[in-house]
Design a protein around this nucleic acid. Structure first.
Lengths: 163, 163
DNA sequence: GCGCGACGGTTAACAATGTAACTATTCCCA
DNA sequence: TGGGAATAGTTACATTGTTAACCGTCGCGC
């Protein structure tokens, strides 16, 4: 029944790194999202936008794009909803009328400050499974994978004779 | 400008684990998807379904759900498209008429066997950034995080006074 | 053997996301 | 200085994901 082959071990998707990371990150993101979605009705893109504004202060949408790895459409939509909800303000940059400068409102700042400790707790809970050296190793590996991840371009299979 | 506070360090989303994993896994999944989407017009759920059938042989949709961490709706749609494309067969289980037994067709098997080596190459390329001990550590940590990830339920923030 | 809760899977309705085309503004240089 | 290329952001449309309701089948107690 198993499409096992002579030379290579079976390809097992449960062990395939992108698959594992995808499942894991979905679960963790979901756990984190409960913090801000339940009580504050924020989506992940919305929270991410507030998070960078809360951390770094006012900036335009493009800077949010750069810091959050979201595309500009997602940011644009998040901004629209956040503005409507009164969490952020949006004013045209007087020096460049294409840009809009975003910033947290007082209400948005309060919300931000309420959410942060909960997310810290989530991260602590995640990392509780690891000891100090493991946490350090995780940091190192993530940094490395984040580097290589950018250049993955499968150019040639190593064993087309996998039949 | 920065919403920095006395006691706690600033909350920086770029360092928040669920965020980092989400960005990383998106990029890796995308890199992997290029392999099967370009040439074979398969989506991720479709490939995942083929992958478990190729690895473990015929099974019903629920077993695919269990092995792929996809919900049943996604599997159902993937199965519909794969059947239409001639990659898999679907026959009612004679011993239980609620179930349908899925299996790769010869064409599906061929496709599967063509894709596998490319995905191996992708994984090798990703792991090339790490040395042997790091790979081992990654394996250990993923296993641990996959365990805890299931039970994350933020119950109490540690520092509500983060204002 | 029959009725009712559970199971396997599909369909339907809706929200979120991605891709591409588009508008408005600014940059830059011929 | 004026006109094309680049930039910032939005809108429109197609695809995908999520949730809930649904249908047929099975298991099981009565």
């Amino acid at each position: 029944m198993v499409a096992e082959t002579r030379a290579a071990p079976a390809f097992t998707i449960e062990q395939f790194l992108p698959f594992r990371l995808s499942v894991l990150s979905n679960r963790l993101t979901r756990a984190a999202a409960r913090v801000y979605s339940r009580r504050f009705r924020l989506s992940a893109p919305e929270w991410r936008t507030m998070a960078v504004l809360g951390r770094y202060g006012a900036m335009n949408a493009n800077s949010v794009v750069d810091r959050t790895a979201m595309d500009k459409v997602r940011v644009s939509r998040a901004v629209a909803r956040l503005t409507a909800a009164g969490h952020i303000t949006r004013r045209i940059d007087p020096t460049d009328h294409r840009r809009a400068i975003l910033d947290l409102t007082p209400q948005g700042t309060t919300t931000y400050q309420q959410i942060v400790p909960w997310l810290r707790a989530v991260q602590d809970e995640i990392l509780a499974a690891l000891d100090d050296s493991e946490r350090h190793a995780l940091e190192t590996m993530l940094a490395k994978l984040e580097q290589t991840g950018t250049t993955i371009t499968p150019t040639r299979a190593t064993a087309e004779s996998d039949d």
